Simulated assay, not measured.
Amino acid sequence: MNSKQLVWSDFVIYLKLTCVAVLWGGTFIAGRLTVSEVPAQIAALMRFIVASVLLVAILIKVEGSFKKINFKQHLLTASMGLTGVYTYNIFFFGALSYMEAGRTALFVSLSPILTIIAARVLFREKLSTLNYWGVILAFFGTLLVVTKGHIFSQLNASFGTGELMMSCAVLSWVAYTLLCKKTTGLSPLIMTTYSTLWGLVFLLIGFIAEIQAWQIFTFHARTYLSILYLGALGTVLAFVWYAQGISKIGTSRTIIFNNLVPLFAVLLAFLLLNEPITLSMLIGGILSFSGVLLTNIKN
């Protein structure tokens, strides 16, 4: 592959990861709409039923059959399903039941830094000094966006059930991202399909304990659309592209795009819900994008 092809390949991955940030920004709005009518456990279950059906259909279409994997690969994808699908979504939807989407997004900004530190320790994945400055810049920009410039007042806010749940969600996603790095020999599509199926199994097992409390819910049309969005775009498309990013440019340079998720969540809230955007949020967005660019500059 020549230099022009390499540059184009990297550009495509960066574009996909930016789109992932947009899609995940939308999950905060869709998730908030969903949990206003559906319990967190049911919301997560419905999201991954949709995602599992679509992923299996796509895998059979692309590969020609449902590809089997070995025992070790099952262990890895099961661990990914447990962390990135089951525990993350239970805590994510649970947190949205207790706190507003903006404060929830504040915790998401912690996942890139935690993941980059872990990747450095576990995988010896190195970044240049300039790249690390980019990480710090992106983090600070994200804080400006989600706190609307009132960083210290938000950081000093009380730490309750929602904050605890979101902290657990962040740690779950860090674990999922690191496990993505370990799934050598699997394409992003196969890896995402199996981890999603395993996650669905764990969600179904967890649902058994809640089955006595099950009742028939009457949903608004927007709830069905939100669940479809969460399953098809927020999971199938976003998870596959995220896995491609880790495979192509590494864990650290992929996870930094998560700093753009709160930015796009705020932007979508402005476009769809007419929520205001302040000057500090605009400055924070510029800093976040600049930080992501700096982190992805290669030596």
Rank of each mutant, 00 (worst) to 15 (best):
Y224W: 15
T129M: 13
A221V: 14
S111Q: 07
A105K: 00
W173D: 04
R120H: 08
F140L: 14
Y194M: 10
F217T: 09
T115S: 08
G185E: 12
G134S: 11
F107G: 02
L171E: 06
Q212H: 14
I151R: 03
Y229Q: 04
A213H: 15
W133Q: 07
L197W: 05
F140C: 09
S128M: 10
F123G: 01
M191L: 14
V174H: 02
L155P: 10
I211L: 13
E100M: 09
V146D: 03
L204I: 15
Y194I: 07
F152T: 13
G162R: 01
I205Y: 15
V121N: 13
F140V: 11
L122T: 10
I190V: 15
S226H: 04
K182E: 15
V135L: 07
T183Q: 09
A169H: 03
W173E: 00
L197D: 06
P112D: 06
M191N: 08
A138W: 00
S97G: 09
P188S: 12
I113M: 09
I208W: 13
T184R: 13
G162E: 06
G134A: 11
S128N: 11
A101D: 01
G149Y: 05
S187Y: 09
A169T: 06
L228D: 05
A138E: 02
I113S: 05
T192D: 06
